[in-house]
Simulated assay, not measured.
Amino acid sequence: MAALAGPWASPGVSARTIKVSTWNLDWLTERAAGDPALPPGLHRRSAGGLRQLSAYAARLDADIVGFQEVDSPALAARLFPPGRYRIVMTGDHVVQRAGLAVATGLTVTRHPDLSELDVYPPDAPHQLRAGLDVTIDDGAASLRILVVHLKAGCRGAALTDRRPACRTLARQLTVLDDWIAQRQDEGVAFVVMGDFNRNLTPSDPFFRQLETDGPLTLTTAGRASPCWGGTYFIDHILLGNQARAWLRPGSLRVLTYDARDPAQAPDLSDHCPVSVGLEMP
């Protein structure tokens, strides 16, 4: 796989090119240590860490950011300020909520959260994360967006693997496949992005199942991420219907952190922002 360059360098894009990004912010919460909703020993962000993340969000300078693992709209607004963005988040009652920061000037229409992604029973000790489902409109074209954060623990194993994480991910695949099939049938341009917790490739059975009702563009295909020294992608941006033709060639970028001071790492995130440019008509 070819590695990507780090920070985004925009080569003079047209006015209608929008930058779309996904970013897992790694347990971004201000809950007190010992809160039963948090894992033991979780590192809490310092004020300086939040300022660092805000500075990276400004450098990212994306028009649409699908984010994961954020506890509240108020915290999201610390990174994506109200003068520049509107914050939309899922309504589920988990700490690691999914959301979207949308540049002002773009119209946002909410759809019901894809709560079916929580395939656990109601009495389970923990619940899984819902997907955020919205339509974005710039006055000339619209784009349906689903932001997801899928079950961890089955990055490359077969979907028939009997481990609980793989069985759970396979059930989530069915839900996601149904959502994509509906968008394919409607003929609307759409994006599915977020933390898939899966090393998706064009030959991965998970991805091939998603393509059952029509082709998708896996924007990370054939590339390796430079995040924290290099890794395979688990954060992906998938494009369907007309959105596939909107992809700006060569626009896939990963915004990497300055890791010269290793002590900074816990205050940032274990994921880097991934972005592409879309040339909406």
Rank of each mutant, 00 (worst) to 15 (best):
L268S: 06
N197I: 08
D185F: 02
Q96I: 03
R97C: 05
E69Y: 10
P73G: 01
L4T: 02
L159T: 01
D123L: 04
Q172L: 06
T22H: 06
D270L: 03
I145N: 07
G41H: 13
L60W: 09
A243N: 08
V94K: 11
G34W: 10
L100M: 12
Y257K: 02
R59W: 03
E211F: 05
P39N: 05
A57N: 05
R248Q: 14
P7H: 08
E211V: 04
R129M: 07
A245F: 05
Q96F: 00
R16M: 03
V147N: 10
R59N: 00
G139L: 04
D113Q: 04
D61C: 03
A157Q: 15
D213F: 04
E186L: 12
L247F: 08
T201C: 04
H43T: 13
P266W: 15
P122L: 09
G41Q: 13
S115C: 13
C272T: 01
L4R: 07
L28C: 02
H93C: 00
D258C: 04
C166N: 14
Q127T: 02
P202K: 09
N24C: 11
H271L: 10
Q96V: 07
P125K: 06
L114E: 13
F80S: 04
S269M: 06
Q182W: 09
L159G: 11
D178G: 05
L79C: 05
Y56I: 05
D270T: 08
T17M: 07
D26S: 09
D261C: 02
P125I: 09
A5S: 14
R155P: 08
D185P: 00
D137F: 06
I64P: 00
P125S: 00
S225W: 10
C166F: 14
G139F: 14
K151N: 04
D161T: 02
A32I: 12
A130F: 13
T29H: 00
G49V: 04
F80W: 06
A74C: 03
L210D: 02
R84H: 09
L216M: 09
A263Q: 12
V94T: 13
Y85L: 06
A58T: 11
L117R: 08
F190V: 12
A55S: 14
R208T: 15
A165N: 11
D63M: 09
G229E: 08
P112H: 07
